[in-house]
Amino acid sequence: MQALNNKDQVYYEAFLKKDHKALDQYYRENYERFVASILKMRMGDIQIAKEIYPECVTILYYNIINKKLEWPLQSRLFTYLMGVAKNIIKNKEKSSYARKIISEEDMQKYDKAFSEIAFYDYQDKAKAVEKLLDLIAEPCKEILKLFYIKEYTAESVSHKLKLNSEGAARKKKFDCLKKLRSLMKENRKEIKKYL
């Protein structure tokens, strides 16, 4: 048990540092257990489990990065992951499965975990933002993607886009972010529901 918690802590700290290798490892390690739990809890079938797994792990990862989930945890990381899954399935309204009574305690546990989840439904929002980014001309679009999605350093961005200096890259970054903000203002009606 202690070993498991230590492992949770190792992953937690690695995720905080945005360690992609740790994320990949966690993803591989917990896949079978996740699918088994979805089936066991009768939350969905294999297809649903496989479909939502990447989304669940992504939310877990970003909730740690954004410190919505802070150490010491009130549950295991996996319990939290199942809480996310429960929420996603509920949102998708795909679950016609009855609750398995012997897992009532588990369900309460997941409910508890769910109450701690600052759920971030990024799927629709991402689509809306993609449309907005299409309205931004190059190189701004690329700069925003490199800085904020791929998390390049200013040095790498200036090198990749052949800018004069890191400072120039940073300045352009803020200019482009301003453009995005003004676009968001202009399109407030369309994207309001996602913000």
Partner: peptide
């Protein structure tokens, strides 16, 4: 809000990257 908007794209990119990881048949 603009940062959160961009983060949604980042999350989507992470999700897609995870999907590319081949997983064992359970």
């Amino acid at each position: 809000q603009s940062r959160q908007a961009l983060q949604s794209l980042q999350m989507k990119a992470t999700e897609n990257r995870l999907k590319d990881i081949s997983l064992p048949i359970t």
